[in-house]
Amino acid sequence: MRILDYLKRRFLHAVLLLAAISVLTFGIAQLAPGTFLDEMRLNPQISAQTVDSLRVQYGLDQPLPVRYLRWIASAFAGEFGYSLAYNMPVSALLWTRMRNTFLLGTTAMLIAWSLALPLGIWGAFRPKGWIDRGNSAISTLLLSSPELALGMLFMLAAARFGVLPTGGMTSLYSEQTGFAVADVIRHLAIPATVLALVAAPMLLRHVRAAMLEAWNSPFVKAAKGHGIGNRRLLLHHALPAAANPLISLFGLSLAGLVSGSFLIEVIMGWPGLGPLFINAIFARDLHVVMAVVMLFSVLLVIANLISDVLLYAVDPRVRAEC
């Protein structure tokens, strides 16, 4: 019963939060200089009158609250606003791209965690061993490299060796070959690896730090003293003790499923939300921006709820709170 109350409360908070995010995003976007029509203004072949009449047609001359209410109405009608650039409802742009982004994000997250967990645990188990030293050198390198430089390197390699495609999600005519799935996997390999390499070092650092702490904690030492084997010690004592920060991290990386891959999607031509969102940001195609921000917020709320519930389930000490 208590958990139901808790969920009810969280749901209420989530609704309030989403409302706040939508209002603030709308307001902040207003503060940024420039409008969707500015690019047209620079074109000498388009007159100022045409640009001004478009402004009226798009309703950009309306006061802020009116525009916000129009957006809300459209969101509740299921269209999530109207894209000025594409001349169509945002909902028509959103869903396929969201699916593609999820596919990439999930794959990358799985790779990142399956790299970070074993390597981090091993690093804590044998600190200053060669694996640990290698880890810290490579992860520092990765942390310091900008995502785009890393992507560029992988793409250069792909262009050179020709084994994997340099970008995109499917080959031309792949739907006729009967190997459409294999084709998508081939295209997925590079962007997912790059994203995983970007995300893994942070996870690795935290896994290692948490495990090191757990491993050196009095109760694990005591258990060690009782002659419990390393394997059991690890799985039953150290790992649960180290789980706390990892769960919070897991929640954050769950929330990052939508937004974490944007830049890589752009440079690798992945047909996700990334190119759409980034173009919309710079083009001031506000309703597209709103839709993606709201999508991300919903995911964030869900991810944080999941991580809170997990925290509650795994760590007995946290339970005192709820």
Binding site: L17, A20, I28, V293, L300, V301, N304
Partner: peptide, 18 residues
């Protein structure tokens, strides 16, 4: 915690431009 979510969700880029 809700304000931390707010901070994570907002399109900062517009605020920075402002």
């Amino acid at each position: 915690m809700r304000s931390s979510e707010l901070v994570l969700a907002l399109p900062w880029i517009y605020l920075l431009l402002a």
